[in-house]
Amino acid sequence: MSDKSFSPKILGFLCNWCCYAAADAAGVSRFQYPPNLRTVRVMCTGRVDPSFILKGFLEGADAIFTGG
């Protein structure tokens, strides 16, 4: 795999109150960012069980993002 073609699959856990809200705000402000992220809304990143992260990697994620 050459570096240029590498397009990572990122799984994100977003806190409803801050990071999810920020992602909404990014939309409202039309900030453009790479389309590699797939998100899961949680009410707080406290909800993220370590097993979720491992599961994400198992499912083929190249990176996991948690925002809260």
Binding site: L11, M43, C44, G46, R47, V48, D49, P50, F52, K55
Partner: peptide
Amino acid sequence: KACGICASHCPTFAISMGGFTNEQLISQI
């Protein structure tokens, strides 16, 4: 406040969050 810290730390998975259960989130992943 539905943050879910309790659920993610419970060693026996005895705590579940309404609308954000382990089962639901795992299937989403």
